[in-house]
């Protein structure tokens, strides 16, 4: 899950376990399966985490980041290479 990814590690979004219309604000900001996300910094006092998505910075609360299933970008690239 995205919430577990350490800072500076690039990942690829695989699946979004977000209910119904809640998914739209994410999609509209480019958080779409297949996109690359990189946690850039954690906000102070346990606040949201800032992610870099396609050159934009987007802050997400932990409960949403916990619903986004990701895999390492390197691993994803490896899968592509082997294909």
């Amino acid at each position: 899950m995205l919430a577990e990814v350490p800072l500076e590690e690039e990942v690829v979004l695989v699946r979004m376990d977000v209910a119904g219309e809640d998914v739209e604000p994410l999609l509209e900001r480019g958080i779409v399966p297949g996109c690359r996300l990189c946690p850039v910094r954690h906000a102070p006092v346990g606040g949201p985490t800032v992610y870099s998505v396609d050159g934009c910075l987007v802050a997400l609360r932990r409960e949403i980041a916990s619903c986004l299933c990701v895999r390492s970008a390197l691993e994803a690239a490896g899968v592509l290479d082997s294909n």
Binding site: P25, V50, V58, A59, E63, I64
Partner: peptide, 10 residues
Amino acid sequence: GRPLPFVMEL
């Protein structure tokens, strides 16, 4: 009601 997820573009 369930709040919209907090998604904030910086």
